[in-house]
């Protein structure tokens, strides 16, 4: 136990350092950090695509058609002679925006519903779970097609449609975590103190539910990017000139026989991004789980 000689001023800084070390310090390994670096690069590209010194992703240069990598185009050019590197960077924007929006929508609505269901139980929980089961049982692609057909093909509409699909998953994760938190005696202790229901939800339940839900969000984001590419493959993602990774793969399939790189490069980019998201999300989640079990 702590020696009494620590002066108070120092203990603040020490506590912060200790907290940092606890979350990020040991045991993640180099793979985790590689994945984090990759995700940071993707996020940076998405944010600053317009200002980066790359070619215009929409400018077809006929002379460069199907150029291979490391020619006058760094990663080659597609069937219309557009620079693949530039398109990847601008396409990251779509993936990141859809990923973030869809995950946030799912997390906010699904998370809130899940916490309420897990805390209050009863009729609301039963009704909610029944509705969610129906949504989950519905073939998601058909549902998505219907939604996109209904609300259109803008970036926002697609994000909302995919986000809607994620509500059941988040609700389940949040509900399961809430159920285990509610059984803990600190919730009982707070009730005994006279804490109101909203205080218990915000101070006791939410902080313990939000971390596993956030970690799940990273994994979900990877899946959202794949869903977007599936939509793009069917020509139902964001409208044509705007580059998206899924759209690039879809266009590349025409040239598979002659220029494999047109499809392979965006596929690899997407693969690495989704893998990194899964990896980081999974590690973070297991870190929180371990912390729980150590307690």
């Amino acid at each position: 136990m702590p020696a009494k000689k620590h002066p108070k001023i120092e203990s603040r800084a020490q506590n912060f350092a200790r907290a940092l070390q606890q979350v990020f310090g040991r045991g993640f390994g180099p793979g985790f950090w590689l994945a984090v670096v990759w995700l940071l690069i993707v996020a940076f590209c998405a944010l600053f695509a317009d200002w980066l010194p790359v070619r215009d992703p929409l400018d077809p240069v006929i002379a460069n058609r199907l150029n291979g990598p490391f020619t006058s185009n760094l990663l080659g050019a597609d069937g219309l002679g557009r620079d693949i590197f530039a398109r990847l960077i601008h396409g990251a924007r779509v993936s990141v925006v859809i990923g973030l929006t869809a995950v946030s929508i799912g997390m906010l609505i699904g998370g809130a519903l899940g916490i309420i269901a897990g805390y209050f139980r009863g009729h609301f929980e039963r009704a909610l779970m029944a509705v969610l089961d129906v949504i989950l049982a519905f073939p998601w692609l058909v549902l998505l097609l219907a939604l996109v057909a209904f609300i259109g093909q803008s970036l926002f509409a697609i994000s909302v449609a995919i986000g809607f699909l994620w509500i059941p998953a988040y609700a389940r994760v949040a509900r399961a975590n809430t159920l285990s938190v509610v059984q803990r005696e600190y919730v009982l202790a707070a009730k005994a103190m006279g804490a109101s229901t909203s205080r218990i939800l915000i101070k006791e339940v939410l902080p313990n539910v939000i971390l596993p839900v956030l970690a799940y969000g990273l994994v979900a984001m990877g899946l959202v990017i794949i869903v977007e590419s599936a939509l793009a493959f069917l020509g139902l993602s964001v409208e044509a000139p705007q580059p998206t990774w899924g759209g690039m793969i879809s266009e590349g399939k025409r040239h598979l026989a002659t220029a494999v790189h047109v499809a392979v490069i965006p596929s690899v980019t997407m693969f690495l991004t989704v893998l990194s998201l899964n990896f980081v999300g999974d590690r973070l989640r297991s870190r929180f789980d371990v912390k729980e079990s150590n307690l």
């Binding site: 005696e185 600190y186 103190m193």
Partner: peptide
């Protein structure tokens, strides 16, 4: 009336500081 439970670890919210845990009733 106040209560103390069997499992001291499960009766403390892992995400809160000891100061806030002890002050909980006073804050409420």
């Amino acid at each position: 009336l106040q209560m103390i439970f069997q499992d001291p670890i499960s009766s403390l919210n892992p995400r809160r500081k000891v100061r806030d845990i002890v002050a909980e009733g006073l804050q409420i």
